[in-house]
């Protein structure tokens, strides 16, 4: 089974890109799709309705969605393999930019909109720098010069990454991406690892406790003055 992880901020065009990929491969490959989101997602329903592929979604709720994905990915790979999928597509929630959801196998794709700010690629940190491929979307809305400036910014952050441009609604110029997907190696599930360091979701704040102040929490926490505590704070 091949694995494709798609990340990127909300409204960058992740789902539009996913649809083009599914449209291109649906006659050749059995595709399974997972959407990870926090409170609401419709992508799984849309994709199932439009292409009749296997879909799942998971809400992370109070848990950090990247943290949730670490746990859920193991299960979803089992699910996809049981259903004899040839290609598993995982679409991340694309919210917090602390982490990246890419694995040491398969293909990691970051989706960036060409109308997002020029400094966005830098701000996105690991989500850009650990991706195998960056796909720049909405290229019909900006000038060629601006697109080249945007791509230059991405290349400066991630010199070894492959950058490509598309109008994801029409699916222009995606042959190169399709080739990369087809030529990506099948995964070996028991050797899957995250590429970047995972989030820390072990403290009471990370799991959704809303109270303010030290006495209500324990875990890895930070004082107003000073660095992150190098011990586990256990409350008062």
């Amino acid at each position: 089974m091949k694995l494709l992880v798609i990340a990127g901020p909300p409204s960058a065009g992740k789902t539009a890109l996913t649809k083009q990929i599914v449209k291109n491969f649906q006659s050749q490959l059995r595709i399974a799709y997972l959407k990870i989101d926090v409170v609401k997602a419709y992508e799984d329903i849309e994709l199932k309705k439009e292409f009749s592929i296997l879909t799942r979604k998971v809400y992370s709720g109070d848990l950090c969605p990247d943290h949730a994905s670490v746990m859920v990915l193991g299960d979803v790979i089992d699910w996809a393999e049981e259903n004899k999928a040839d290609l598993l597509i995982v679409e991340s929630a694309g919210l917090c930019l602390r982490c990246s959801p890419y694995l040491n196998q398969g293909l990691g794709v970051v989706v960036l909109s060409s109308i997002s700010g020029i400094h966005t690629p830098e701000k996105m940190g690991a989500m850009v720098s650990l991706a195998d491929v960056a796909v720049v979307t909405k290229i019909d809305l900006v000038s060629q010069a601006e697109r080249e400036v945007f791509i230059q910014k991405i290349s400066e952050i991630h010199p070894s990454g492959i950058v490509m441009e598309t109008n994801a609604l029409q699916g222009t110029s995606l042959h190169r991406l399709y080739n990369l997907i087809v030529n990506s190696e099948d995964i070996t599930p028991d050797q899957l690892m995250l590429k970047g360091s995972p989030p820390i979701g072990t403290c009471t704040i990370c799991v959704g406790k809303k109270e303010i102040g030290w006495k209500n929490h324990f875990g890895v926490v930070k004082r107003l003055d000073g660095p992150i505590a190098d011990y586990l704070y256990r409350g008062e």
């Binding site: 700010g117 020029i118 900006v142 000038s143 601006e146 400036v149 230059q152």
Partner: peptide, 22 residues
């Protein structure tokens, strides 16, 4: 293109400098 609007939050000099580098 027909675009008469730039989204890139850079000065004209910086914009052209990065494009020249690209």
């Amino acid at each position: 293109t027909q675009n008469t609007k730039c989204f890139t939050d850079l000065s004209t000099v910086d914009f052209l400098t990065i494009h020249a580098r690209a």
